[in-house]
Design a protein around this nucleic acid. Structure first.
Length: 266
DNA sequence: TACAATGTTTTAAG
DNA sequence: CCTTAAAACATTGT
C-alpha cells in the first residue's frame, strides 16, 4: 500500500499514542522484518517507555521514545500500522505489538518487505541522517531534479521516479500519475527530456505529492476520479482526460500504466 | 495454476 | 567507483 501520503496517514495512527506509556512489548525476533536489528535492546528499551513523537520522511517512519529509543519503520509493500484494543490478540503477521493501558500499537506485514530498525542513544542513528531532500521542501528545486536526471540519463524516466534518493516517497502509482500529468512517456530516457518536460515533471511531482498528502495523508480519503490513479487498474480503463484506452506494460521493473495519446514516445 | 501485487536489496554486467 | 537491469525476498488473492 504505502507511498508518501499513506505513510503519513499510518504515522498519524500510531502517533495517537504520543505521550502514553508502553506497558509491554510483544516482538517476533525471528521475523524477517527485524533482520539485522537488536531485538533484545528494542524490547528492553521500549518496555515502560513513553512515545515522545514521530516523523515521516518519504517512505521512512521514525518513532521516538523516552529512554533514548528510536524505532524506524518501513512498510514495504504490505505493511500496516494499526491501533487495536488493549487486549487484541497477536495475529499471524503481527511482528511487533506495543501494549498500552487503553490500546495496542500493531505493526503488521504479511509479505515482510517492510522493516523495523532500532537504535538507543541520544543522537539520531545513521538511518535517520543524511536523507534525501523531501519533495515538498523548498530545497526540492528544478535544478536538483535536472541534476538527478542527468546522473541517470540512460535509464527510463519511470525507473528514476522510483529512486528514493531522488524522489523520496514516490512509488509505483505516484510515478505513473506524475508522468501522466507531465505528458511524458514512461520509457523515455531521463537524459533526453526537453527543458519544458523537466519543468513539468518537477511541478507535477510536487502537485501529486501535495494533493495526495492533503486528501489521503490527513484522513485516508479517496482521490478524485480525474486522477489516473482511479483508472489504472480498471479492466478497459480509459484516460480521464481524453478517453483513450490506457496501456499497461512493465517498465523499470514495475507494471506501468499510461495514456498512449497523452504520453507520446518521442 | 500461474501470475501479479502502492518495495527495497542484492547480484551481475557494462 | 558508477549506472543499469534483473533476480530475489514472502505471502495472498485472482
Amino acid at each position: 500500500m504505502p507511498e508518501l501520503a499513506e505513510v503519513e496517514f499510518y504515522r498519524r495512527q500510531w502517533d495517537k499514542a504520543s505521550g502514553q506509556k508502553i506497558l509491554s512489548v510483544h516482538v517476533n525476533g525471528k521475523a524477517r522484518v527485524l533482520r539485522g536489528t537488536d531485538v533484545a535492546a528494542l524490547e528492553k528499551t521500549l518496555r515502560c517507555a513513553s512515545m515522545l513523537g514521530s516523523e515521516a520522511h518519504g517512505k521512512q517512519l521514525m518513532f521516538r521514545f523516552s529512554n533514548g529509543g528510536w524505532l524506524g519503520v518501513h512498510l514495504g509493500m504490505t505493511g500496516d500500522l494499526l491501533v487495536e484494543p488493549a487486549d487484541a490478540p497477536v495475529l499471524k503477521h503481527d511482528h511487533l505489538v506495543l501494549r498500552q493501558a487503553t490500546q495496542s500499537l500493531v505493526f503488521r506485514d504479511p509479505r515482510q518487505f517492510g522493516r523495523l530498525l532500532f537504535h538507543k542513544g541520544k543522537e539520531a542513528p545513521d538511518w535517520w541522517q543524511n536523507r534525501a531532500v523531501e519533495i515538498l521542501s523548498p530545497q526540492f528545486t528544478l535544478a536538483l531534479v535536472q541534476t538527478f536526471l542527468s546522473r541517470h540519463a540512460r535509464a527510463p524516466i519511470k525507473a528514476i521516479l522510483l529512486m528514493q534518493n531522488g524522489f523520496p516517497g514516490v512509488g509505483n502509482w505516484m510515478a505513473d500519475e506524475i508522468l501522466w500529468r507531465s505528458k511524458i512517456h514512461p520509457n523515455r530516457p531521463a537524459g533526453r527530456l526537453r527543458g519544458d518536460e523537466v519543468k513539468r515533471l518537477h511541478a507535477q511531482t510536487r502537485f501529486v505529492c501535495r494533493q495526495s498528502m492533503r486528501i489521503v495523508g490527513l484522513k485516508n480519503g479517496d482521490l478524485p476520479k480525474s486522477w489516473l490513479f482511479q483508472h489504472r487498474w480498471e479492466k478497459g480503463g480509459k484516460c480521464p482526460v481524453d478517453g483513450s484506452a490506457l496501456r499497461r506494460e512493465e517498465i523499470g521493473g514495475r507494471t506501468t500504466c499510461w495514456c498512449p495519446s497523452c504520453q507520446k514516445r518521442r
